[in-house]
């Protein structure tokens, strides 16, 4: 994924970047620097040293762990968030910090397993860290991005909750308020939607999305699907765009093509895959056993 190291959102859409990260099951931090209406362009032109706040999205194994917005990447320390909400007294926080430091699992998960934080509260923290930020980054139309695959995992800020990059795209695009800049990217009313896979690939679709996906067999146009489901055409186009963005369907522009047969990968082995033991293993073991003879 070298080409992805950095670039402009005009070259790659966020959805495409997220999909690549999901496919590659990447670890790292994606920073997104908005360069659109949300900042004052004239000011930036005058003063090139002016720092612009960025969004920093941390991924682990292709899953979104946290999103931070600010000038420089900072930990969103979970314990600080907990303290702010006065869920736990300061004394106990200090003790917990000692017990937690050095652990190589998300702190939120450990606090939950210790029954110090409830699932509901942990989810709230995740909502603040991730879900509330997601729609905002998908509103960004222009900007620079950069993916740093060497960024380390930040256990103190991790709740343990996460979202696959694919579902993050889905959520981000669902929350989008302004579709105007995407109008020419939405599937045309007369084009057809074709499933790219016979399964949902772990995406959590909403009801309407599921219905559209079921009809996406390459036979009906977007217009016909809207009519059949009794939904507004714009809504179906937006749903179609979301499904295409996460790779569940693609748009078939002109003539209908016969539905693609999806061939499932054959499972090799299955019964008894007797893993081969290496000669190095046996030699090493013999060496070890010889010492035991004393």
């Amino acid at each position: 994924m070298q080409m992805l190291a950095h670039g402009y959102l005009s070259q790659y859409s966020l959805a495409e970047i997220f999909n690549l990260i999901q496919e590659g099951k990447k670890n790292g931090v994606l920073s997104i620097e908005p360069r659109d209406g949300s900042i004052d362009a004239s000011k930036v032109a005058q003063d090139s040293t002016l720092e612009i706040p960025c969004y920093y999205v941390s991924f682990q194994g292709g899953r979104v762990m946290s999103i931070f917005y600010g000038l420089e990447y900072e930990n969103q320390d979970l314990l600080a968030m907990v303290l702010e909400r006065q869920w736990i007294p300061l004394e106990q926080i200090k003790e917990l910090k000692k017990k937690l430091s050095g652990l190589t699992i998300p702190w939120g998960l450990q606090l939950k397993v210790w029954e110090i934080i409830s699932v509901d509260r942990l989810r709230l923290l995740f909502d603040i860290q991730v879900l509330s930020q997601l729609a905002k980054i998908f509103e960004i139309s222009e900007g620079k991005f950069r993916f740093d695959p060497h960024a380390e995992l930040n256990y103190p800020e991790m709740t343990g909750l996460s979202l696959s990059a694919r579902n993050a795209v889905l959520l981000g695009l669902r929350g989008l308020k302004d579709w105007s800049r995407l109008t020419n990217k939405l599937p045309a009313p007369e084009s057809r939607l074709q499933r790219a896979s016979s399964e949902l690939q772990g995406s959590s679709l909403e009801n309407d999305e599921q219905l559209v996906w079921q009809l996406a067999l390459g036979e009906m146009s977007v217009l016909e699907i809207a009519a059949q489901l009794n939904l507004e055409i714009d809504k179906v186009r937006q749903i179609g765009f979301r499904l295409c963005s996460i790779g569940l369907t693609h748009e078939v522009a002109v003539k209908p093509s016969p539905p693609i047969e999806i061939v499932k990968p054959v499972c090799v082995g299955g019964g008894n895959p007797n893993i081969q033991i290496s000669t190095a293993f046996v030699s090493k073991l013999i060496g070890f056993l010889k010492q035991q003879k004393g």
Binding site: Q60, G61, R63, V113, L122, R123, G160, L161, S162
Partner: peptide, 11 residues
């Protein structure tokens, strides 16, 4: 898979 397991345990 670690992420999925952690998400499950945390949530």
């Amino acid at each position: 898979i670690d992420g999925i397991l952690q998400n499950f345990v945390s949530g």
